[in-house]
Design a binder for these strands. Structure first.
Lengths: 211, 211
DNA sequence: GAAGAGTACGAACGATCGTGCTATATTGTC
DNA sequence: GACAATATAGCACGATCGTTCGTACTCTTC
């Protein structure tokens, strides 16, 4: 219970950090299948080889563990989905973000698909700090898409009359639905359907509407 | 809450159908928030006023209870979403199904939104009979949309070249995403965004492209 | 009016839940 | 090498989990 504002933090030992990382990586993976709440301390302890009390040495409570797990999932998502798309701008970035997400699902990076899609569905109706954190991350993602769409409009790659909120809602809906369907039916074809749908959605707002 | 020592509650008459119905209705409602697996026998017993062993008199196991709960949710969904749309055909039916679903969410019929969306996300990655039943129901819904879309094409209300699978994937994605966002952010505006997106998606495949 | 099926309860089971408390290696700093 | 901090395991707790069992009452059927 060290509560000093500027806590003199001592050098953490390397093995502690490693264990912590192992726990969190495992927690993210398992949470996509069992659910963030459904994943029990005992199960996580068994999967990592760390004792239950060992877990409590790192995180003081299940809720703290969940918050740290969301943070880890966020870093994974940024690294694997967002970062690759940031090399492009405007319409290309919009396309790249969607494609990056779809590949992330298709590649089965996490056994239960997108961590945030699973967590949002699980915790959406239950108030609490974890839900707020999930909602904030969702907001960030939507904002990322929105900014890219606005750039695309500014660059003349999308019609000026484009309803950005609707377009972004649409794109997010498509990739998330691909995730859900892929997990539920184990059918890679839905990913391609999503690709086609993304292309269509973007085509609607293409400038100088052809035909 | 009658707990007086001499309280001899009159055992009710032989119609346990009412109790069974009460249990299942409550289970559907609670499962949209707690999850179908997350909802415990004890919690359900408390919410219904029926004892845990009373529940077991009706359903022999938690899994049987879950299967019966899914069946009840199916009937609710058909009654409230599907049936109203069956008075129309073709493109109108397609529109009516989407609108019906959106109103069903908007009206907060169930506290955690669409039962099947929640269950699919929760159980998608976990094999078992309950997951299969959820997947089958999802299939039925997609098939319903598909048949309506094909009717619309046959009636000349949609282009003959329409990729039905993609269009249906799109429509389903939009309404489900509206459900998720509505529950997570408690924001009615997303429902209207979904309405706009549905209209857009259908407009893309309108025959003799306007303008 | 005896038998049997249906309905429901209370008590209890072993397992697991999240969470403490304590002990003990191991490590970095002096 | 002393000492504090870190990193982990062991053990036990009260609560809750899904489930079973014995009991008791009601209704139907013979």
């Amino acid at each position: 219970m060290v509560t000093s504002p500027t806590a003199v933090q001592r050098k953490t030992r390397a093995d502690g950090e490693r264990t912590r990382g192992l726990i969190l990586d495992t927690a993210v993976r398992l949470a996509t299948v069992e659910g963030l709440d459904g994943l029990s301390i005992g199960t996580l302890a068994g999967a990592t080889g760390v004792s239950k009390s060992g877990l409590y040495a790192h995180f003081g409570s299940k809720e703290q563990l969940q918050l740290a797990t969301v943070e880890t999932a966020r870093r994974m998502f940024i690294e694997q989905v967002v970062a690759p798309a940031l090399q492009t701008t405007g319409l290309d970035r919009l396309r790249a973000l969607c494609e990056s997400f779809l590949r992330y699902v298709e590649r089965r990076t996490l056994p239960g698909g997108c961590f945030f899609a699973a967590a949002a569905a699980e915790l959406g109706g239950r108030p609490g700090p974890v839900r707020e954190l999930i909602a904030a991350n969702q907001e960030d993602w939507i904002q990322l898409l929105t900014a890219a769409a606005e750039d695309a409009i500014a660059a003349g790659q999308l019609r000026r009359e484009t309803d950005v909120a609707v377009l972004v809602f649409e794109l997010n809906a498509l990739v998330v639905a691909a995730n859900t369907a892929f997990i539920l039916h184990d059918n890679p074809a839905v990913i391609d359907r999503a690709r086609a749908a993304v292309a269509r959605a973007l085509a609607v707002d293409a400038p100088d509407a052809d035909r």
